[in-house]
Design a protein around this nucleic acid. Structure first.
Length: 296
DNA sequence: AAACTCTTCAACCGCTCAGAA
DNA sequence: CTTCTGAGCGGTTGAAGAGTT
């Protein structure tokens, strides 16, 4: 490549802003089936007019099955405060200690609630940078948590990070990211996925133009066993998503969906799913997932 | 009820990092 | 070693809802 950075995707003609339920379902249906081997290629293959980055973010921050919704508990907030004192604005690291919470969510909670609360409590009490957490070394200012240790000695970022992490772990009993996750994590269908080997448009029956045949002219090699293992989780998650998205909350929504979509409904099962009424069993997507996605 | 302000949070942007070629 | 690419991270923005006047 030449100078400068290539854009993460061709931005012209792509959707921006809030995701529609139809886009959500399309993304979920695609990932349920194929996983997300290549975020950059995903939107094209899934028939989404979104940048890959946007898809990744939407999945990670909102659509993932193991997302925990609702208010943060006191314990979670305390953990965030303690970890922030140790790690600074390492939101993804902090998130790894809070199963079901995303870095974005934690960042938002910190910026909107916890930071203010700490400032207020620090104003009330005698100011002490480490007063909020019983942790030996803290850096309450977001940007300064990296390169200096308590005694002012300069260290590498890695050394400092490892040391502070070890301190936290010794305080909390946590060991490492993965172990913390494994205890509470909800099972997510985990597709080992080879994007180079499939005709995705046919698999999904998505009626979208294929601009570059070479990128999708192979056939998919899927493990049936894995499908069977993952099928139930997938269905549960889709049911949950349907409920969570409140797709059929009112007639107006349905009306809206009839007008907004890009792809011909009859040739697009995901889209057709959104055209059904609340009392029309079974869901076309259910059937679609059963007959085309989950049981191949 | 209307206008305005504040708060929240999903989403975007630009950058860095890590791995592959 | 250098270059390139994709993934991931953290800061920031802006729309929408809630609260206040």
């Amino acid at each position: 490549m030449g100078r400068g950075r290539a854009p993460c995707c061709e931005k012209v003609g792509l959707n921006k802003g809030s995701w529609t339920p139809a886009e959500d379902m399309r993304l979920v249906a695609y990932i349920q089936k194929f996983g997300h081997g290549n975020w950059r290629a995903l939107p094209k293959h899934a028939g989404l007019l979104r940048c890959g980055k946007s898809c990744r973010l939407r999945w990670i921050n909102y659509l993932r099955p193991d997302i925990k919704r609702g208010n943060f508990t006191k314990e979670e907030e305390d953990t965030i405060i303690n970890l922030h004192a140790l790690l600074g604005n390492k939101w993804s690291k902090i998130a790894s200690y809070l199963p079901g919470r995303t870095d974005n969510e934690i960042k938002n909670v910190w910026n909107t609630h916890l930071k203010k609360r700490l400032i207020t409590s620090n104003e009330l009490e005698t100011p002490s940078p480490s007063s909020s957490a019983s942790i030996p070394c803290s850096s309450s200012d977001q940007s300064e948590a990296k390169s200096t240790s308590c005694d002012g000695e300069t260290e590498t970022e890695t050394d400092d990070y490892n040391r502070t992490l070890a301190e936290f772990e010794s305080l909390t009993g946590a060991h490492d990211d993965q172990e913390v996750h494994q205890e509470e994590k909800i099972e997510i269908p985990d597709y080992d996925f080879d994007i180079g080997e499939l005709v995705i448009f046919d698999e999904l029956m998505l009626d979208i133009p294929v601009e570059n045949n070479s990128s999708c002219n192979n056939s998919l090699n899927f493990e049936e066993k894995q499908e069977n293992e993952n099928g139930n989780e997938s269905k549960k998650w889709l049911a949950y998503l349907e409920k969570e998205l409140d797709l059929w909350g009112g007639g107006e929504d349905k009306q809206e969906h009839e007008n907004e979509d890009i792809v011909d409904m009859e040739s697009d099962p995901v889209l057709s799913y959104f055209q059904r009424g609340p009392s029309t069993p079974p869901s076309p997507l259910d059937s679609f997932m059963t007959s085309n996605l989950l049981t191949q």
